[in-house]
Nucleic acid binder design. Sequence first.
DNA 1: TGGGCGGATGTTATATTATAACGTGATCAT
DNA 2: ATGATCACGTTATAATATAACATCCGCCCA
Lengths: 154, 154
Amino acid sequence: MHNCTTHDDCVADALQQAEEICAARELRFTELRRKVLELVWECHGPVKAYDLLEKLDHRIAAIKPPTVYRALDFLTENGLVHKISSLNAFVGCSHPLRHPECYFLICTECGEAEECCNSDIVSAVAKTAREKDFKAEQITLEISGRCRECQKVN
Amino acid sequence: MHNCTTHDDCVADALQQAEEICAARELRFTELRRKVLELVWECHGPVKAYDLLEKLDHRIAAIKPPTVYRALDFLTENGLVHKISSLNAFVGCSHPLRHPECYFLICTECGEAEECCNSDIVSAVAKTAREKDFKAEQITLEISGRCRECQKVN
DNA sequence: TGGGCGGATGTTATATTATAACGTGATCAT
DNA sequence: ATGATCACGTTATAATATAACATCCGCCCA
């Protein structure tokens, strides 16, 4: 299910990178935001806001929905987390510096969401947007289907 | 805001085409489904389930949420309507026979969602899916930004 | 040094979106 | 005509998200 061998590492790396990005942009990477990002990464896959809420409750006392949503908004706006609209779920961005080029292959069987960065698709999108004089600001590309592993199974 | 000059026509055309498609596929295009599709088209843009609900109430008595959602599910499954996940809204499909190739340019200013059919994007997506051995079943591509008209304004 | 500003979080309440579960009625093939 | 299946009605509630206002905290600078 993972593409990172030692899962702790990928969480730590993500946090480290987030720290650096926020520092560089003069954003406040608060305790809460850090905690939320950490949890998102620990889930290693699309995770629902209310699931995060529950998990946070065990670490910090009595977190309420707006608190989680605000942290998620911050992380999303700054490219550290993606919202997967078709699932109402959130997932850590593996390529925060190429964030706008990312899209997802979402397996309906196992729930895994593989993040891909592909400039062909991005440039095809940019091209049609240009043709229509449309100023694209955000692209949501979510491909659902069955991943390699799950196709094997049956 | 529209790309059809006489708006009545495009609603009538969509209903006509839906009728034919359902007949060809031996699907039941019931009164309710017809009514919902008609309303979606009349809105001529992304419309929320609960807004439909309200409008239906004026035509048919006391419609409840599951009724609308079931009709929308039917229409969505059969390619007559798209769900725009990033807006939690629904919109009539202008190209029901090329439905899987459609995507949207969504203006954050005026709310218009222009439907496009573009095989470049579709084939770019298909290519990466193939490379990853991913069996794509559904593609959600939603591009938000500002449309030509709204860029002019300010 | 303390006062005020702005951003982050806490808190309460509620809005919005969607579905589960079960009952009833219509349709259709045999 | 009867049983199977699908569509729809109905009640209740689940799941997702935000509005609005209070409080806290760091920071600037008078």
